[in-house]
Structure formats: C-alpha cells, structure tokens
Simulated assay, not measured.
Amino acid sequence: IYHHGKKTVTPFAVNALQRTSDLMALGQYSDLTRKHYLNELRFLFTYYPDIRPSQITAEMTLNYLVYLVKTLGCSKVKCKMASQSFSFFFQKVLGKPYKTPPVLFGAHQKKLPAVMTPEEMRTVLHTVTNIKHRTLLSLLYSTGMRLSEIANLKITEVDSKQMLIRITAGKGKKDRYVPLSPLLLNELRLYYIQYRPEKFLFNGAGKGGKYAPRTIQRVLEMALIKAGLQNKHYSVHTIRHSFATHLLDSGTDLQAIQQLMGHQHISQTVHYLHLSTKRMQKIVSPYDTLMQQQQP
C-alpha cells in the first residue's frame, strides 16, 4: 500500500491515477483541470480502499457524493467537480457509461457577480506604486484576461506592431486576440526596461518562471486594502467582470464582448446585461410614459 500524505492509496489506485493522468495529458487538458480531477479520484479511491478502482460502480460514487455533502458539508461546486472527474474516469479510462447525477444541476439561486465601479478601479490602480504590480493589474483590466491566462502570458504574445495581445490556449483550449491599449503599451515598456522579464511577461521568483496565480491574487488583495475596498470581497475575476460590464456601459456590442472574453456561447455574455447600471438608468418606466401622455 502506498501513502499519499495522510491518505492511503493502493497500487491499483496508483495505476488508475497514472492512466487517468496520461489520458488527460493526451487530451491536452489544462494542468489545473488535471490536478482537480486526480485529487477527486484519489479521494474516491481512498474512500473505498478495499475495492479496485475498476470495480467501483456509479451507485458507489453517488453514495460518496452524499457523504461529501452530509458528513463533510461540501458545496455543490465541489460535488460537481468530483462527479465530472468520475465521468472522465468511467468513460475515458474504463470505457463504461457514467451519468452525472441530474440533481447537481438542479435549480439554484444565481447570485450576480460583483463588479467594481470605474471610480473604484481607478482608485485601486492609483494606490499601487510598484510598477510591476500596477502593470499587471492594468493589463487585467485592459484585456479582461483570466487569472491563468495572464500568469501564462508570454512576452512574444504581445504584438506592439499590430497592437494586439494573443491569448494562447485560454479556457476551452481556444486562442483569441484582444486589443493592446496604447497607454498601457507605454507602461509595459517602462516595466520591461526595469524588470527585464524572460519568456513570461510576468516572472516569478525563479529565473524565467511564471508568476504564481496565488501571488497575483495577493497583489490585488494588497491593492484593495490600500484602496479601502478590502470588505468588498473583490477578486481577480471581479476585474474581468468589470472589464466586460464597463465595455457594455460604453456602448460595445455583445458579440464583440463575447469575442474579447473568449466565451463559447453568447448566453455566457448576456448576463452582463444585468450588471450594466448605465443601461438600467436609461430605461424609462412605462408608468412615467403613461402619466406624461395624460391629457390635461
């Protein structure tokens, strides 16, 4: 029996995890997805230590999901991730059918994501004195990039001649282009002269290595504290939401925003209509129209 931290993993489980990892690598799944799937499968295998992974049934995975919720108090998001990893293992590794429990995708309350006001975004950027950190946050807001995308952005993907930034293998393994702001280009040049990054636009502690996503999150957290916005629960993804919402407020059409955000379906972009306060403020109530049309 092999030990992984405090969890016991049998040789059969080790082989199953390795096979899963190999097939995910072949399918070019992202490193983060591979990490999540393998962790969830490892937990499942240690929950049934006396049963070979190939003999685990769909009913057993359902019982495990119930255990996650009732005993450990796990969220629906956690259970969805676990179920998706089981689906991959059953279908791709074992060649067996697997159906994700429909109840995981049942009706639930949808909370609108937080969005910074333009004034808040300006305050955050103005409070950052470190040129590397300010350039990083400015680039996030200027492009709407995801956390993983800016962490993996390479110097060669910034095209100052065409004023475009190529985002390679974003979510869904799709490349896309976003405009490069002329004002931001000046700041990028000053940053480059001072820091001389190698390969990745934002290097971490190691030479030529990329900035860790957690470090990027920490940069924003410190900026929010300086700006007095630490209680707003803003995140790096909030900047992405703010980018799309502010574009909509300024009159950019939904299809253009869809392309910039890298959304596969327009339905993913439509929800920003609910976040656009300027759009809501322009709406005239039918009551006002009715009253104004009343004859004296």
Rank of each mutant, 00 (worst) to 15 (best):
E59G: 14
Y64P: 01
L275F: 10
Q264G: 06
L247Q: 06
T10D: 03
Q255T: 12
L23K: 10
A227C: 07
D253L: 09
V178Y: 11
T46W: 13
R42V: 00
T215C: 10
D31W: 02
G204S: 05
P49D: 13
Q258V: 11
I257Y: 04
M222L: 09
R189H: 11
L224C: 13
H241V: 09
R196W: 01
K207Y: 08
I266T: 13
T238Y: 02
H36Y: 14
G172L: 01
L248G: 05
V14F: 09
R176P: 06
V284I: 12
T61C: 15
Q259T: 09
T123I: 15
M291W: 05
I239A: 11
T46M: 14
R34V: 04
M222P: 00
S267R: 13
G106V: 00
A169W: 08
V219D: 05
S142W: 07
P53A: 13
Y234H: 13
Q162M: 10
S160Y: 05
L275I: 08
F243L: 03
H233N: 15
R42L: 13
E198D: 13
K99D: 14
H274Q: 14
R34M: 11
G251N: 07
Y211W: 11
H274L: 08
M261F: 00
G204D: 03
V69A: 11
H246Q: 14
M24R: 00
S142E: 11
G209S: 15
I283L: 12
N152M: 05
A25H: 07
H241M: 05
P296F: 08
K96M: 08
L44T: 03
Q84V: 06
L32W: 02
Q281G: 01
S285Y: 02
L139H: 04
G228A: 13
V284W: 04
L220K: 08
F200N: 03
G204I: 04
P113H: 12
F202Q: 03
V77G: 07
T127Y: 05
Q109R: 15
Q84T: 09
D249R: 07
E120M: 07
P182K: 06
F45I: 01
H271T: 14
S148E: 11
S85M: 01
P296T: 10
Q294P: 00
M60H: 03
L229R: 04
T71A: 11
F105L: 00
S235Q: 07
M24T: 00
K80V: 12
H246W: 10
L38R: 03
Y48L: 11
P97T: 03
K7S: 15
A256H: 08
L137C: 06
R146C: 06
G208Y: 09
L184M: 05
C79D: 00
N152I: 01
T269A: 03
T71D: 15
L290P: 01
S75C: 15
H3E: 13
T245N: 06
